[in-house]
């Protein structure tokens, strides 16, 4: 574990959010320091994405409590100033974007551009570096909606780089990707985090990945913060039970010190599966 400095970039104090009367986040209190790699985990509907978007001021509904971004309340930030510090990286979804990768990345210089200015050489340089850093140069001239999910995710990360953001808010960055591209994306994020001191906050469903990559883990359940701490502390049966209920068991990881979780099977399910396998084997013969 790295030595974490005490420079707090994101801080929530009793932060709550209700959407259409339904509480989505309940009195969240936490601090994220500069350069940390923090994963947000929890079951579906736990409020993970709402919390992530809150860090970029994307809030709807009734808000109470406080949320500071780099030492200033979220309400006082101007979005174009915040964009120079923080960027949200969405899932590599299939939305249609008619621009080429290069055009798209140049558009990400928005917070540095005035309405009538043309693109200046510095913008081009930053975008070029972002493309080289993420390995997106080969498809610079292609339209974004002709890319595969993996390529598209790299472009979205390049966008955060081009924007100059040092807080990356990633929403399930590896969903929709195959194992090869998952590893690619994760190493890209880890590199930015370790070499360039980028603060990473990532929503993920993959707790096994999260414990290996992260400095700290945020676990949410029904909008409440049920765990916030280092990865070794979450991989305990009673902690996991508080997050996911009874559905998981811990097993030893073949290579790492930390255990990993797999879905639990009841003895009945186990018998059922054995029977089914036997039948399938019969058929094969």
């Amino acid at each position: 574990m790295r030595n974490l400095n005490t420079n707090v970039v994101l801080e929530a104090r009793k932060f709550s959010c209700r959407i259409a009367g339904k509480p989505v986040l309940r009195e969240i209190t936490l601090q994220i320091r500069r350069g940390e790699y923090v994963s947000i985990v929890g079951p579906n509907g736990a409020g993970k994405t709402t919390l992530l978007r809150a860090f970029d001021r994307m809030l709807t509904g009734e808000i109470s409590g406080e949320l500071d971004i780099c030492g200033m309340s979220w309400e006082e930030w101007k979005q174009s100033d915040l964009a120079k510090l923080a960027a949200l990286v969405p899932q590599a979804d299939s939305r249609v974007i008619p621009f080429t990768v290069e055009q798209f990345l140049l558009m990400c210089r928005y917070p540095y551009m005035s309405p009538f200015a043309t693109v200046n050489p510095n913008d081009r340089k930053v975008v070029h570096e972002a493309m080289v850093g993420t390995g997106t140069t080969p498809f610079a001239k292609r339209r974004l909606d002709t890319l595969s999910s993996g390529e598209r995710q790299k472009v979205y990360i390049a966008a955060a780089l081009a924007q100059g953001a040092h807080i990356w808010l990633l929403d399930e960055p590896t969903t929709f990707l195959d194992y090869h591209h998952q590893a690619d994306i994760l190493s890209l994020i880890a590199l930015a985090n370790k070499e360039f001191d980028v603060t990473v906050v990532a929503v993920t469903h993959d707790l096994n990945h999260a414990v290996l990559e992260s400095d700290r883990i945020i676990a949410l359940r029904e909008g409440k913060l049920v765990f916030y701490g280092t990865p070794d502390l979450i991989m305990k049966p009673d902690t996991l039970k508080r997050v996911y209920g009874d559905s998981m068991v811990l097993v030893d990881h073949p290579k790492a010190d930390l255990p990993m979780i797999v879905p639990r099977m009841t003895p009945e399910q186990d018998k059922e599966l054995a029977k089914w396998r036997a039948k399938a084997r019969e058929k094969m013969k």
Partner: peptide, 21 residues
Amino acid sequence: LLLDLNLLSTGEDFAFTRGVN
């Protein structure tokens, strides 16, 4: 607002995180 419009055409969340009000 042409730059804003460019970003809005890629989706509102993108525009927002790029700094568009």
